[in-house]
Every structure is written in structure tokens, then in C-alpha cells.
Amino acid sequence: MALDARTGINTAREGKQLPDVDPSSVSPRDARELSKLFFERLRTLEEGTHEYQYARNTLIEMNLSLVQFAAGRFRNRGDGRLEDIVQVGTIGLIKAIDRFELSREVEFTSFAIPYITGEIKRFFRDTTWAVHVPRRLQELRTTLAKAKEHLAGELDRDPTVAELAAHLRIDEEEVIEGLIASNGYTAGSLEVPPSGPGDQQARTRPHAELWGEEDPGVELVEDLLSLAPLLRELDERDRTLLSLRFGQEMTQAQIGEHLGLSQMHVSRLLSRTLAKLRTGLLGQT
């Protein structure tokens, strides 16, 4: 294949035609030389033509070994998504091919690797956090992790917030913000029992059963749903009284003045109406 590749290169340069190449059979060494030929021809072709697509697609397939190489550096990230990493790295390779120019006098390999690794790092930044946080805090988390490791080695203990701030020459508030944001990188399951000291029975029950409490608002909603049909049965005057007393929070004296009634009369009417509603609710239960 190496000999055929070299022959193809010579023929292509003489006849200005691209050779028929099986990209999967081209070695990385031959791919480097063939890529120069394809890039040289690509810049003279009209975008959208069949020959342009052939040249571009062949360049992509011939240089997939660069993606495999770059993806291998992220193999031990613990995500188990090497296939996804390769797909994302391929996007970086395509961007590099579309932006590469032979006039730069730079090897395509040196030009493409930063594009590929940059795309992979962006993928991890955008998808591996359990909770989305701003990019500034994501980068601060990495900086803080390195600083903590460095200072822990020097101090033989975990550094304080003040020591981290002094080492990084940033405000303590910014350090605290970064440490809090770090909690969003991973998330635990509510179905996992808590660890550490505590009641033995509690440690056998998942977090979902131990956290939270009854929401009093739920019972209120149920009461309101039960109350709605009873309110519709009241006459307009009684509904107006309830609206002024409990909706607008007016006093009985203010209601009496508003409706032209005595405060005592208002009190009797409210007591009667509330007793009627209470009886209706108790009857339902």
C-alpha cells in the first residue's frame, strides 16, 4: 500500500487528478504525505462538487488516527464513553480540515490536534457536570483542585480558604464560590442509603425516605378543593362578606361601614356562614 500510495501521489501531481485511495488501508505515515496532496488539490476545487466532497471525506477518514490518539488521552476519565469522545473529536478534525491552509507551512498533525482536544474538552465541560454551572466556575474548580493538592503537599494538611485565596491571589469569596460550585460536578442517588455514623436503621433506608417532610400546602389544597362547591352554594351577600374579611383582610367594623351594617350584624353573619361551611366540610369527611 505504501508503494501504491507513493505512485498515486506522483501520478496525481502530474495529471492533476486525485488517486483512488482506500483510507482505511493508509498508514499514518502515508496519510501525512497523501494529505498534503489532497489539501493542495482541495483549495483548487469548487465547494459542493463531487470531487471536492471526495477529497474532503478522504482527508477525514485518512486522519481518524489523530482522533483515536487524542481520545486515548481521555480514556481513563471514568465516563465509559470512548465512542462519544471519538465522535466529538471527529468534529474537531473536520473543523481543522476546513480551516487548514498549506501556506501556513505547518504540519497538519500539529494544526489538527489542538482542534480535536479542544472539542473533546468542551464536550466534557458541557456534559459531565451533574448541575450546569458557568464556565468560569468550572475552570475555577480545576484551578482550586490543583492548588489544594499543591498546598496539601506543602502543609501536610488540607489548606484553608484563606490559604487558597492567598496562593491563587483571589478573594476568599471567590474561593468559597468555587468550592460550592464543585458540588455540582457529581450527584448522588436518592435511592442510596446514607453513609457514616448514625442510627443503624436509618442507614439501611435510602435518602428519599429520610429527607423531606409533609407539605402543609398539600392539605390546604385539598381543603380548598372541598370548599369550592360549598362556596358556590352561598348567596352573593355571604360570598361578599367572606371576600372582604379573608380576601381583603378588612375588619368587621370596616366591612360594616362598607356594607352599611353594624359590626355586630356582620359578626353574626360571618359566624353563621363559617358554621355552615364547617358543617359542610365535616359532612364530606
Rank of each mutant, 00 (worst) to 15 (best):
G212S: 04
L277G: 04
V67Q: 01
K95V: 09
G80Y: 08
E119I: 09
A5F: 14
I60S: 15
G72F: 00
E105H: 05
F124N: 00
L230C: 05
G72T: 00
P193G: 03
P19K: 03
H207S: 11
L242I: 04
L37S: 01
G80W: 10
D223L: 13
L144Q: 01
A166T: 07
E213W: 00
A275Y: 08
M250I: 06
A208N: 09
R73I: 15
R237V: 07
E222S: 09
K276G: 10
G8E: 03
L210R: 00
L225V: 12
T160F: 05
G178S: 01
E177Y: 01
S243E: 14
D223R: 10
I255Y: 02
A152F: 06
L66M: 11
D22Y: 08
A130G: 03
E14Q: 14
Q87V: 10
V131H: 15
R169V: 13
Y52C: 03
A181H: 03
L224S: 01
A181M: 04
D30E: 13
N63W: 05
M1T: 07
S27E: 05
I120Y: 02
S267I: 06
D20F: 14
P216M: 01
T127S: 11
E83T: 14
H132S: 15
G80P: 02
G15H: 15
L190M: 14
A187M: 08
M264N: 14
A187F: 07
H207K: 14
H150V: 11
F100C: 05
L140E: 10
I180N: 14
E47M: 10
N183C: 14
I85M: 02
T117P: 06
E173P: 05
D4Q: 11
D156M: 10
L140S: 03
L168G: 05
I60T: 04
E51D: 09
Y52A: 01
I180F: 12
T117V: 06
R29N: 09
W129L: 01
L282H: 13
I91L: 07
A31K: 02
F39E: 02
T186A: 11
L234K: 03
L18A: 07
M62G: 02
R6C: 11
R237S: 14
P216K: 00
P23S: 05
Q284R: 06
P159C: 04
E257V: 04
L45D: 03
Q68L: 15
E101D: 15
Q201Y: 13
V131T: 13
D158A: 12
L230V: 05
T160P: 03
I180M: 13
N57M: 13
E107M: 08
L234E: 00
S110V: 12
H265A: 10
F124M: 06
I116E: 00
K36Y: 12
I170Q: 02
A275T: 09
S267Q: 09
M62R: 00
R99M: 12
I255T: 03
E219Y: 11
D126W: 01
L37T: 02
L179G: 02
L242F: 03
L230A: 14
L82C: 09
I116P: 05
E191F: 15
A147D: 02
N63H: 01
P134C: 04
L230F: 05
D215F: 01
